[in-house]
């Protein structure tokens, strides 16, 4: 039998995303393994066992070995890995934090990621996000759990220019958010005729 086919919830949107100008680039992030990590105390031992120092500052993220560690709460993080299978990541992280009283859960398919790049993406996000995204306030390493339109999202800033973001959204809301983003970007996709 052939290998099992994977399908992405936003396959039907790919063409529309590809047509967007660079000023409002939207790209679907590839499937990555993600684990929700819960841990009461973050210390050097935790860092050693996990291979990443989990960020303790609220609303921040840090790069991890092959992914990111995003602060979700005072005892909760989202850890991603581009090199491990979902069950591998869960098993590794769970083994690392279990002795410290922590836990880990595979949430790879809970959310999908969209990469938003370009000079106008902040304008697109500002149409539905009440958090201040000015790069002075929301530079590289910032994150926020908030709403974009009517969808709950985790928003990550990847640059100090405000021109590179990742939006993580619950998979079932992905189609809504994709439609919302395309609609929000519409005014930047037309060449002014007057």
């Amino acid at each position: 039998m052939a290998e099992l086919l994977r399908t992405h919830p936003l396959e039907a949107w790919t063409t529309a995303f590809e047509r967007l100008p660079d000023t409002v680039g939207i790209a679907v992030e590839p499937f990555v393994a993600m684990a929700d990590v819960r841990l009461g105390t973050v210390d050097s031992e935790a860092g050693t066992r996990l291979g990443v120092d989990l960020p303790t500052e609220a609303n921040t993220w840090v790069p991890a070995e092959a992914g990111r560690a995003v602060w979700l709460g005072p005892d909760e993080w989202l850890l991603s890995s581009t090199t491990e299978a979902p069950e591998e990541l869960e098993a590794r992280v769970r083994a690392a934090v279990l002795p410290l009283g922590g836990s880990a859960t595979d949430v790879s398919a809970q959310r999908i990621g969209l990469r938003l790049t370009g000079a106008r993406v902040r304008d697109v996000l500002a149409k539905g996000c009440s958090v201040d995204l000015h790069p002075r306030v929301f530079g590289r390493g910032s994150s926020a759990q908030t709403t974009l339109g009517q969808a709950g999202v985790v928003l990550l800033s990847l640059s100090d220019t405000g021109e590179d973001h990742v939006v993580l959204v619950r998979s079932s809301f992905a189609g809504y958010l994709a439609d919302w983003l395309l609609d929000a970007a519409l005014e930047f996709t037309h060449t002014p005729t007057r």
């Binding site: 609220a58 609303n59 709460g73 005072p74 009440s130 958090v131 926020a144 759990q145 908030t146 709403t147």
Partner: peptide, 17 residues
Amino acid sequence: MQLIECPWCGPREEVEF
């Protein structure tokens, strides 16, 4: 739209609470 200060996340719009 009032702001409410989350002890962790700081001020956010009241609809987040």
